[in-house]
Every structure is written in C-alpha cells, then in structure tokens.
Amino acid sequence: MIKISQDNFEEEVLNSPVPVIADFNADWCGPCKMLKPVLEEIESERSDVKFVSINIDDEDLIAEDYEVFSIPCLIAFKGGKEVARSVGLKPKAAIESFIGEI
C-alpha cells in the first residue's frame, strides 16, 4: 500500500486512472491494525484497484477535508471524487463486497 501525504495525495488519489481505496488509520488504532492484513490480501488479488494508506495523525488535514471521524475508515475514490465509504472493522467478505460495488 502506498503511503499518502499531503504531497502525493492529488497525484496518487485524485488523479489516479484506476479507482482508489484509501485506508484512513492511526498507529494507536487496534481495529486498523486488524484490517491492514485483510486489505493487503485483497490488494494482492486485485490489480484493477489501487490501495493507499493515510495516517490521520500525520495527515490530519486530509482527514478533516474528508470528514473522517472514526477509524478504520475506507474511502473509495473514482475520478477524483469520493464514491463510497466504509467505517469500522469488517470481515474480508464485507470489504470485498464494498469494493465490488464501486
């Protein structure tokens, strides 16, 4: 998963030619740590979607812009716009169906 900062957010997320799943997380967030291997597993199975990681403590401005108020939070971007969001730790099947719907 590519690590996102204010510097590469536009290029990697907003201008991405393929849909992006942005994983908003923090070091102190246990459920985020549980979710990470699940996302990495799905990432290795799919080449049509890009997965990126955004640390909300380092990148609080991005988190604020997108009104992230609970983590883990997955935001799906398509053509530079948010198209869907999933909040909370969910099993792999639920994450797959969330990604499948975008």
Binding site: M34, L89, P91
Partner: peptide
C-alpha cells in the same frame, strides 16, 4: 467477525 473481540479497541 475478526479474532480478538472487543479488546482490540
């Protein structure tokens, strides 16, 4: 769901 239960929070 996921292993660990609510303690992971």
């Amino acid at each position: 769901m996921n292993y660990g239960g609510q303690i992971i929070n």
